[in-house]
Every structure is written in C-alpha cells, then in structure tokens.
Amino acid sequence: MVDLSMHLMDIVQNSIRANAKTIDILFEEKTKTHTLTFVVNDDGIGIDREMLKKIDDPFFTTRNTRRIGLGVPLLKMTCEQTGGNLEVKSEPEIGASVKAVYRTDHPDCLPLGDIAGTLSLLLKANPEIRFRVLYRLDDDEFRFDSDELKQLGIELDTAEMFFALKEFFAANFEELFRKRPSGSYLC
C-alpha cells in the first residue's frame, strides 16, 4: 500500500463484508506526541476469538476465492515500520475496531494520499451504509456524517454528487491541513 487512503479503502471493505450498517472512521494527528492514529469502527458481525488470533497472519483469510489475506498484515507492517502499532478488537455480533498508530516523525510514515477521493467513492458505492468521519488535527477537526446528507435529500449514489462530494471533502481537508505545523513528515 502506497498511502493511508488505500489502507482506509481496504479496512473499510472488511467492515462492509461484515455487514456493517454504521462505519466510523477516525484520524487523529497529534503534534505533541508525533502520532497519527487511524481507527475504523463498525457494527458488523465481528470477529470471533479464534479468528482474532490469526488476524495478522497473511496466510489466513475468511474468503474462499484465495488463500491469503494481506489487508490487516500490510496495515500492521506499515504502522510498525514507523514505530507505531496495530490493535484489532472485536466483540462477535457487536462489531470490530481496527486501530493503527503511526509515528509521524519517522521518515517511513505513509503519506495520507487521496482521502477525499476514497471517502467519496465509498459513499457512492455504499449509499445504504452510514459513514461517520472525524479528522482531528490537534485542536481542530472536521466532522462528517452521511446521514446528514441523506436528510438533506442528497443522492449519494449519483455521479453528479460523487464529484460534488469529492470537492467538498477536498476543500475541507485542505483547510484543515493548512493548520498542520511544519516539521511533520505527514503530507
């Protein structure tokens, strides 16, 4: 994976496959501790204890189309290579939580990539799922809830609104990222 937005797309796909109705995505950048925390929480079918043990095993997957599953192992690799860590928690039937911590003062920290494009693609392809996004950068934040858009009558699955949403996310992230102090490897 070249950037964090690819991991985001990948980990969220796991939640979708677990029949999640609500998916919470959190990014938290902290200048003080030089960390970026990336969390995906869902209310899907969850992961049982046996599977949880094997979750970072690249030769374990729940699919039967292939015998390897690299999504979580790759995420673990990219956060650990910066000195961070990965934590996967789950309660069967209630949901799952994937939390990856990256050290942003490490040169191997992945760039964020196209978060705006990834989010708008996820919304377009999964209009029935409620996505809540919180991006926190020290004391500033950007919040988003796809239910609010639905209440405004916005049709997420149309091409027209896909472009509008992409622009919306890009403009908001741009404004937020302008507040990022210099010296961070994150970009």
């Binding site: 405004l152 009558g153 149309t158 027209e160 609104m161 509008a164 622009e167 919306f168 403009a171 908001n172």
Partner: peptide, 21 residues
Amino acid sequence: TEIKTLADLKKKQEEVKSRID
C-alpha cells in the same frame, strides 16, 4: 463556485435533481 459546506452540497443536489430524475 467551490463546494465546501453541507448547504453547498444541497444546492448542487437541487441543480442536478432534474437530470437525475
């Protein structure tokens, strides 16, 4: 114009509504 707020998104939706319908 730039789309930055929920209101902008709503306006855009209204603009393209006829086409979608």
